[in-house]
């Protein structure tokens, strides 16, 4: 071939070098986690895009183990917070405690001061706790008393929701769901994968992951991800996908006009572009191709499409709508 444009070629080389740690992380994580490739990719996309992840799946699908292992490989601090109906915002972000010895109030930081947070069953806590977490996710700092504290970097929240047992839960409002960059839906592992999981758990010593990275490496990688080239054609492709959720009839999808109550917000376009760039980085490429957009489209869009009662009555899911959109929107 071909003589690539110098900048892109250089960028490609740079990204190949900078993204080499992805293989290391994958290697270490695969020692502990069997299967769930999509979850691991999603974790990396969220981590490198500075986004947060909402995870939906039945219990026992290695959600906690995955994020714990990721924290281990990066030498980062990990906190697991079990959200319960009696949890208070102070239990999450911390509070002021009076020290009799010093005769003053002292700040007691909450478990949110960690690099990786697993907010387990986020929908079991009331709205005020959810809001406290989501505000911290957005602002990247919390205020305790009169003092504001920055959260550690990188800061990744992986919140889980259980799709069953909806009684006594506080479902996240759509506006707050929008703050999660990705919503990953986990399914049961394949039969051969589950065989591996079973054998792994029967061994005398459960495998552990090694530390292969430092949080600084992640912060540096995030900067490199921003450099990944996205052509105008890809930008337009992303806009077409997002706009088709808002104006379905203009995109030859009249059947979805009455199925979508509200289309995706501009956060969808922003996060789809960011996630596509990160996906290209994970695939060790310096530029985004339509495959990258399609690969992250479901996770970015599924919680950003409002379904009408008609859609629910006909068992049409947001995934069905995304599939149809991807089948109708012309690829550049």
């Amino acid at each position: 071939m071909s003589q690539m444009n110098v900048n892109i070629q250089e960028l490609n080389e740079k990204i190949k070098q900078e993204s080499s740690f992805v293989d290391l992380i994958n290697l270490e994580m695969s020692k502990v986690i069997i299967g769930q490739k999509h979850l691991l990719e999603g974790l990396l996309v969220g981590l490198l895009s500075d986004g947060h992840i909402l995870l939906e799946g039945v219990p026992g699908l290695a959600k906690t183990l995955a994020i714990n292992t990721l924290a281990t490989t990066i030498e980062a601090k990990f906190s697991r917070i079990q959200f319960t109906p009696d949890l208070l915002p102070a239990d999450l972000i911390g509070t002021m405690i009076y020290s009799q010895k010093k005769e003053e109030f002292q700040v007691k930081k909450g478990p949110i001061f960690a690099n990786f947070i697993l907010a387990d069953e986020i929908n079991r806590s009331p709205a005020k706790v959810q809001s406290a977490l989501l505000e911290a996710m957005q602002e990247k700092h919390v205020t305790i008393g009169s003092e504001t504290f920055d959260l550690p970097k990188p800061f990744l929240v992986m919140a889980t929701q259980n799709p069953i047992e909806q009684e006594g839960t506080y479902p996240l409002p759509e506006a707050q769901m929008d703050r999660f960059m990705l919503k990953i839906v986990l399914d049961y592992p394949q039969k051969n994968e589950e065989l591996g999981i079973m054998r792994e758990n029967l061994e005398v010593e459960f495998p552990t992951a090694n530390k292969v990275l430092k949080p600084e490496n992640i912060m540096k990688a995030r900067e490199v991800v921003k450099e990944v080239y996205m052509d105008e054609k890809i930008e337009n492709y992303i806009l077409d996908i997002v706009f088709s959720t808002r104006y379905a009839d203009k995109y030859n999808l009249p059947e979805f006009k009455n199925m979508i109550s509200y289309g995706s917000s501009p956060r969808a376009s922003i996060n789809l572009a960011k996630a596509a760039k990160t996906y290209a980085f994970i695939k060790r490429r310096g530029y985004v191709i339509p495959e990258d957009v399609r690969a992250v489209c479901y996770d970015v869009m599924r919680h950003r499409i409002g379904l009408t009662y008609e859609a629910e009555a006909e068992n049409i899911t947001s995934e069905n709508i995304i599939t149809e959109i991807l089948n109708k929107v012309e690829v550049p």
Binding site: M1, S2, Q3, N5, Y229, D231, K233, I289, P290
Partner: peptide
């Protein structure tokens, strides 16, 4: 493959290609 490079990565090609 080559067209993707040209379209999405500012790839340049020579006349023979």
């Amino acid at each position: 493959s080559l067209a993707d490079l040209v379209k999405f990565a500012k790839g340049e090609t020579d006349p023979d290609e």
